[in-house]
Computed example of a mutant assay.
Amino acid sequence: MPSQTALNAQEILKADFQTLVADTEKLLEHTASLAGEQADELRDQIRESLLRAKETLKVTEESVRLRGEAAIVATEEYVQAKPWQSVGIAAGAGFLLGLLLTRR
């Protein structure tokens, strides 16, 4: 399972990307009042870029979700195959974390 820091970074990246897309959509709406062939070309380019960005975000999100699910399955299989080792690892990690927290 991904660490909390990685999850936070992913959420921040996703939020920033969605903000960028929303701002670009607003810009596209504001340029609608512009006239001329160049303005039409610019709007078309922005629209295509937005569609590509949204698709990339969907693909990336799906990829991250699938990798997360695979990690969960692998972890569950490992814990079921080697329960005592898993308990030992968890106890060791808890002990180290306890040592670190009491030193502060």
Score class of each variant (00 low, 15 high):
1 M>W: 08
2 P>N: 09
2 P>S: 11
3 S>G: 08
5 T>D: 15
5 T>W: 10
5 T>L: 15
5 T>Y: 08
6 A>R: 11
7 L>R: 15
8 N>A: 15
8 N>R: 15
8 N>E: 12
8 N>D: 13
11 E>F: 07
12 I>Q: 08
12 I>A: 13
12 I>G: 03
12 I>P: 01
12 I>C: 08
13 L>G: 04
14 K>F: 10
15 A>M: 03
16 D>R: 08
17 F>V: 01
18 Q>D: 10
18 Q>M: 10
21 V>N: 07
22 A>T: 04
23 D>Y: 02
23 D>I: 01
25 E>G: 01
25 E>P: 01
26 K>C: 05
27 L>I: 03
27 L>E: 04
28 L>F: 03
28 L>P: 02
29 E>V: 07
29 E>I: 12
30 H>P: 00
30 H>T: 04
31 T>C: 02
32 A>K: 14
32 A>T: 11
35 A>N: 05
35 A>H: 06
35 A>Q: 13
36 G>T: 04
38 Q>Y: 14
41 E>I: 09
42 L>K: 04
42 L>H: 09
45 Q>N: 14
47 R>G: 03
47 R>C: 06
49 S>A: 15
49 S>K: 15
50 L>G: 08
51 L>D: 12
51 L>I: 12
51 L>A: 13
54 K>N: 11
55 E>Y: 04
55 E>W: 03
55 E>K: 09
56 T>M: 14
57 L>T: 03
57 L>I: 01
57 L>Y: 10
58 K>M: 07
59 V>Q: 14
60 T>I: 07
60 T>E: 02
60 T>H: 02
61 E>S: 10
62 E>S: 12
62 E>M: 11
64 V>D: 04
66 L>M: 05
66 L>Y: 00
67 R>A: 10
68 G>W: 05
68 G>H: 06
68 G>T: 06
68 G>K: 10
70 A>D: 01
71 A>P: 00
71 A>R: 05
72 I>G: 05
72 I>W: 08
73 V>H: 03
74 A>L: 07
76 E>R: 11
76 E>N: 13
77 E>I: 11
79 V>P: 01
80 Q>Y: 02
80 Q>W: 00
80 Q>C: 02
81 A>Q: 10
82 K>V: 07
84 W>Y: 11
85 Q>L: 12
85 Q>S: 08
86 S>I: 01
87 V>A: 09
88 G>K: 13
88 G>I: 03
89 I>G: 02
90 A>H: 03
90 A>N: 04
92 G>R: 06
92 G>I: 09
93 A>S: 10
93 A>P: 02
93 A>T: 10
95 F>C: 03
97 L>F: 08
97 L>K: 05
97 L>A: 15
98 G>K: 02
98 G>C: 09
99 L>F: 07
99 L>W: 05
100 L>A: 12
100 L>Q: 08
100 L>R: 06
101 L>D: 08
101 L>V: 13
102 T>Q: 12
103 R>I: 03
104 R>E: 06
